[in-house]
Design a protein around this nucleic acid. Sequence first.
DNA 1: CTGAAAGCGCTTACAG
DNA 2: CTGAAAGCGCTTACAG
Lengths: 357, 357
Amino acid sequence: MRQSRRLWAADLRTGTELTTATITDVAREAGVSIKTVSRVLNREPNVREETREAVLAASRALNYRPNLSARSLAGSRSFLIGLFFDNPSPAYVSDVQRGAVSRCRESGYHLTIEPVAADAVDLEGVVEQAVSTLRLDGVILTPPICDDPRVLSVLESVGASYVRIAPDREKGRAAWVGMDDRAAAQAMTDHLLDLGHVDIGFVKGHPDHGASRLRQEGFLQALAERGIAPRDDRIVQGWFSFRSGFEAGERLLAGADRPTAIFASNDDMALGVMASATRRRIAVPEDLSVAGFDDTPAARTVWPQLTTIGQPILEMAAVAADLLITGEARDFPAGHPPGRVFDFCLTVRDSTTRPSR
Amino acid sequence: MRQSRRLWAADLRTGTELTTATITDVAREAGVSIKTVSRVLNREPNVREETREAVLAASRALNYRPNLSARSLAGSRSFLIGLFFDNPSPAYVSDVQRGAVSRCRESGYHLTIEPVAADAVDLEGVVEQAVSTLRLDGVILTPPICDDPRVLSVLESVGASYVRIAPDREKGRAAWVGMDDRAAAQAMTDHLLDLGHVDIGFVKGHPDHGASRLRQEGFLQALAERGIAPRDDRIVQGWFSFRSGFEAGERLLAGADRPTAIFASNDDMALGVMASATRRRIAVPEDLSVAGFDDTPAARTVWPQLTTIGQPILEMAAVAADLLITGEARDFPAGHPPGRVFDFCLTVRDSTTRPSR
DNA sequence: CTGAAAGCGCTTACAG
DNA sequence: CTGAAAGCGCTTACAG
């Protein structure tokens, strides 16, 4: 039974398109078989240039849009990539989305999103359901989801290929993109040391995030290379939140014996440190240099603007999508998945300067 | 020809699932026809409870996941909703996504995203391409895309139903959800007046956004109701950016004749005003009360925390998805689409207090 | 309350 | 270089 009514004649008359042209319509218009249309659209070889042009012309004339459901059902690809995330930060997620979509568009792929809670009881269920019903061609994972063993296992069990952004462990398990957090933290510390600071406070990140450890290592490494012994009371635990940064600032800035600079493991905490300084009438950067990490939009939304570390998140996400689309994320020698380290960018703004004492 | 190999026996042996069960497998397992399985899964009536349970049991046993592509190709629904946005702000978009997805999950829908540039040359093309190839069941539009006549036209021409979030004009054209910007701005102004402020500065929003006009009207209305004549030099143009807020602050706070409170049309500008005050050693809130609008995360990431207006964005987005899923966004009397106004929330924090003079 | 048949719009595997 | 046939996994429309 024919289920949808075609109204080409009517369409031409009224100017309205109630239906969409199918591959059959294009084939008829071009005077070829649907297989040939399929060849042209999929850029398969062995099509005469003349035939090819006729198909393209017919396709354009009818404003043909291949039906993704049909392609997916018949073929092995769904042209859908899934992004699973548990909001590290809206700005970060936004960049990941834009980067991934830009690459997807080049190849006719689309991006579906699945915001999830890292501590959800049925996290695996949500992942499995989405991958199976949508037949996702690939999955992109951001921290901390990218390090959840349950998620990785379920993806592998259903045979889905995936790329991890900034994974912390088991990098030999699947494709990934990331940056060198340790080197970046070291570079920032060097920046402060170069300005003349020798007494630098450090606010640690959330203990569950692998990046926290690496950033601290980079900080200590930089000090060590200059022969500076770190003072235990200058290193304070934080949780990546504004409030934890504020509290760290209160501790580090109490009393006369205080550091001339503070390096916080992310921007939110750096803003907290700045707020604490403001409250104590300690001028930034004149009396205290403050540095962050991440280059969030907020880094430019404070006074003075924050010196921080930026990552090419758009590009990292685009490459993640690329690994999925090209199939590189699926086909790799066991234990040797493709991985790529991106450059960071040390952005010096107004919150750091030479020490006044 | 059979194209995919089924390896049930092997699966059982190895414990790996290389294939996914289909409706045929479930039907066989339950001893019914595929039509009956379809009925149960789609919650259609006329199925014996006993049969129904057998199907459900078989479905669970085989871990059956209906293939969305097949459902979409055969039926009239794709179970896909598209979200088109041009980043008003990452935090806003993030909330919209989470709200929409939460409602989608309840009904087995998924969300695809299409970040677009409002000034893109081929904006219509991107929209048309996505809607046609994905067979989107519905589209959600955020400002300023929701007011782009080209986008609305192309959606209507392909017969897509859509819901606009916070549209500014032609509300009779399609379904929408929104809030009362004027009433919210009036409430904020009343808050400042109630504290005892009579000389209040106002920073206008971006002239292209409908909300800007409404917020200014609310501000003026509140003053008018107390018989206070607005001073022209107390109203400054802004562009919703931190920098424009900072510059507005510099103008409003120069000299001794300055307002005791400033109401900025969004949080970013309010933060700019606060930065300007800090630079001028004007204490907030002691010497100057500052109020914002939007309740962005940054509102709590400053010192003092910002008094502002919050919107139930999650809920608004969930209702938008609901209107699409239930079909209410499609079937409505001409010129009378469903629309819903949500309550705002005046959140008083630390940046506003009684005037000191 | 249940099912057999046809069809959705593509791709795959072959044949020529 | 091109095409006819079969099939992907569902829903629709109909019959009983």
